[in-house]
Design a protein around this nucleic acid. Sequence first.
DNA 1: GCCAACGTTGGC
DNA 2: GCCAACGTTGGC
Length: 173
Amino acid sequence: MAQPEASATITVFTQGHGMRYWLMKAEPEELGIADLAALPTQTVGWCGVRNYQARNFMRDQMQQGDRALFYHSGVKEPGVAGIVEVCSSPYPDPTQFDPKSHYYDPKSKPEAPRWQQVDVRYIKRTRYLPLSAMRAEPDLEGMLLLVRGNRLSITPVEPAHWRAVMRLLGEAP
DNA sequence: GCCAACGTTGGC
DNA sequence: GCCAACGTTGGC
């Protein structure tokens, strides 16, 4: 069966040296920035992505060394909580084969894995930047996270938007 | 808890 | 290949 391709084209913005910026959503009930920081290796496999467009970003676009905004979703006040770094190549998400997993996909077979993941590494916890504050920031206009109707759990971030977020976080660009 | 938005499924 | 029904996401 052919896998659907992304219905809309989203440009992935690269800098001169090829590093890309991302935003990755996590539900802190499952994995928050504090949990990530407390893990022995401070790395985690970004499992559970079950959207083809988000999967394709990991599979086709992400590179080791890319930075990502770590975003808390599904909470009273969603927002950016930290920064992580992509630290692996894409590889099959093991939870798709685990019948006990919430992310189990009975249609995916080990010989033809449907879902991929990357590992990410904790870089730092930042000042909390709520979604509401991001919406109020003119420099973030057009950021995919803020575009009406967008539900992607992984989105590319334009360098200009990344710089604006770093400024709002009080972080060096 | 609501519901808009949107992705997936499956009958035809 | 169309598209209605259904399920999920995720902010509010």
